[in-house]
Design a protein around this nucleic acid. Structure first.
Length: 572
RNA sequence: CGGGACGUAGCUCAGCCUGGUAGAGCACUUGGUUUGGGACCAAGACGUCGCAGGUUCAAAUCCUGUCGUCCCGACCA
């Protein structure tokens, strides 16, 4: 490819819209342009990288036994109603109407479509296992699109769906995808690691996310260096001991705490109740039912856990207008000991189990209760792990100190079970002739997000530093004289022809620009190797050999092909 | 949806407080000089100041509304 005929609109200055580094580089290196918030056009360089990533994914999916299909992006709402997600996923569903005023949805994912397909095609256990995947555009009505391709309204996803006759078979399929994902992200040049994950609205009971460590990520990952435990903070647990039981004190005692409405204030004189001896009382609305949540004063409620453990579709904190009529006091004086309506369930964090000598609100403004025993004084309906892990806590598996790292989620694998096959009638007959629902798994990779994650991880002060496997071109030839009949340009053309003939992807910077401009652009766009050809080096029969981010050396002009091959082979 | 900031040339931004001829740098065009890490000189072209109302003799500037962008939060498969 000749640069002058291509389309690489690099930017010297950073567009105001970009905040994080990868987003800036995406724009500056001319990979994408924004149409409007959350919607981007891929320019040729960006598209080439996208295709590279897609092909790596294809190769690994195929290798793992998955088969490529392509499903419609526009879908009938009926299948979403059938699966129940027309309601549970309604916030992210784009809906459109046709001329007859019939409603359609733009697919945010394809469980409904693939399950409907399979329901009509698979009828025997002999036809499984099966795994179908596609690389497709998805549409999600994100509340706040941000960070360029990281969270967009429209994005490209690889999604695979496995169908098995048994739970054991489904686990095999899951494991195959898990291994394939590790290979895919490694091949893309990404440092990455799988973590245990929450399954969210998609359902299922076994799930891992593939994370790329990055400070700009939207996830917190809890991990243990000693034993390898790693989990999304939404799911992570630790080996922290339960609250120590003490000598069971006298009966509950009410005491005045005028103006004290925070854990912190109650911890100070004259009360001096340490946070770990307080019970924090929160009120949540779960699918329109109020719930009382108890966690220890020094713990934070993890809403994802709450959602998962209660099985609710949605939870949100109740506001003061809802709380006062319910418990008779404002937030800051709440508790679950007295004046709790019988209809309201009390859910408590495991860490409080057996705790006594605790202090909590009295459900009366300006008063708290001391000598509270969870067992004796609080009627708890359910005990769950509900707290958020913090760094430094002991690992539940090995006791070593846990760490927390920000990360970008680039892939997610789920064991779905029969949630969708049951609702959408994807049944088969087993060896005994008994009808059963297929056991499913689903496996997603954010392709466009992965592209940006590579940039986020592979860059320096001059621009992008592409791993060879996903580089838009492996080599950039930079002749410093571009007149057609000049010896420099003739050598550049020869090298270009030779490398291209050898199957190497080369871009020839034939623009009539000053050297500095070309060097800066080549660095910004990030080609792994740049070959510089000027009159000086040429006089010595040499060509400049400059790996991106490495040292410039001179090589013999007639050794270019060999040296380039060596270099590329060493980087795979 | 709550909080904040912003919207002026293709891009980055100044001007707004204190109303009165719309600016700079980069990019672009032409000519010249340059030519190994984003050149220099000269001349030029480029704007309904996001949009709609209002106040005023007069609005980029003040007021109201609206749309859009970005940040924080909430939310999030």
């Amino acid at each position: 490819m000749r640069w002058s005929q291509y389309f690489i609109p690099t930017l010297k200055e950073t567009p105001a819209e970009a905040e994080i580094l990868s987003h800036k580089l995406l724009l500056r290196a001319g990979l994408v342009r924004k149409l409007t918030g959350g919607l981007y056009t891929f320019l040729p360089i960006g598209l080439r990288v996208l295709r590279k990533i897609e092909n790596i994914i294809r190769e690994e999916m195929n290798r793992a036994g998955a088969v490529e299909v392509l499903m419609p992006a526009l879908q009938p709402p009926e299948i979403w109603q059938q699966s129940g997600r027309y309601e549970t996923a309604r916030d992210v569903l784009y809906k459109v109407k046709d001329r007859a005023n019939k409603e359609w949805v733009l697919g945010p994912t394809h469980e409904e479509v693939i399950t409907t397909l399979v329901a009509g095609e698979i009828s025997s256990y002999r036809q499984m296992p099966k795994n179908y995947y596609q690389i497709q555009v998805k549409f999600r009505d994100e509340i706040r699109p941000r960070f360029g391709l990281m969270r967009a309204k429209e994005f490209i996803m690889k999604d695979a769906y496995s169908f098995d006759a048994s739970d054991e078979g489904a686990m095999v399929a899951y494991r195959k995808m898990y291994d394939a994902y590790t290979r895919i992200f490694n091949r893309c040049g990404l440092r990455n690691f799988p973590v245990e994950a929450d399954t969210g609205v998609i359902g299922g009971n076994h799930s891992h996310e593939f994370m790329v460590p990055a400070e700009t990520g939207e996830n917190d990952v809890v991990y243990c260096e000693a034993c390898g435990y790693a989990a999304n903070i939404e799911k992570a647990t630790s080996g922290l001991p339960k609250t120590a039981a003490r000598e069971l004190g006298a009966a509950v005692e009410k005491f005045a705490t005028p103006g004290v409405v925070t854990i912190e204030a109650l911890g100070k004189a004259p009360y001096s109740v340490p946070a770990n001896r307080q019970i924090k009382t929160l009120v949540y609305i779960a699918d329109s039912h109020p719930l009382i949540i108890l966690v220890r004063g020094d713990d934070q409620l993890n809403e994802t856990k709450l959602l998962a453990k209660t099985g609710a579709v949605a939870v949100r904190p109740a506001n003061a207008e809802e709380i006062v009529p319910l418990l008779g006091a404002k937030p800051g004086s709440l508790g679950a000991v007295v004046n709790v309506p019988a209809t309201v369930k009390v859910i408590a964090d495991e860490r409080l189990r057996g705790a006594n000598d605790m202090t909590t609100g009295a459900n009366e403004d300006g008063f708290h209760l001391r000598n509270v025993s969870m067992e004796r004084d609080v009627k708890v309906s359910d005990w769950f792990d509900l707290r958020t892990v913090t760094k430094g806590e002991p690992c539940a598996k090995c006791g070593q100190s846990l760490k927390i790292q920000r990360a970008i989620e680039v892939g997610h694998v789920f064991k779905l079970g029969t949630k969708y096959s049951e609702k959408l009638n994807a049944n088969f007959l087993d060896a005994e002739g008994k009808s059963k629902p297929c056991v499913m798994g689903c496996y997603g990779i954010g392709v466009t997000r992965t592209l940006q994650a590579v940039i986020e991880q592979c860059n320096d002060k001059d621009g992008i530093v592409w791993p060879v496997a996903v580089a838009p071109f492996a080599v950039c030839i930079t002749p410093l004289v571009v007149a057609k009949d000049s010896p420099v340009m003739q050598l550049a053309e020869k090298i270009y022809t030779d490398l291209t003939a050898a199957g190497i992807e080369v871009i020839l910077d034939d623009r009539d620009d000053r050297p500095g401009v070309k060097f800066k652009d080549a660095d910004l766009v990030g080609f792994p190797l740049r070959l510089g050809i000027g009159e000086k080096s040429m006089a010595k029969g040499e060509v400049e050999f400059k790996p991106r981010g490495g040292e410039l050396t001179a090589i013999k002009a007639d050794e270019v092909l060999v040296k380039v091959r060596e270099f590329l082979a060493s980087r795979v």
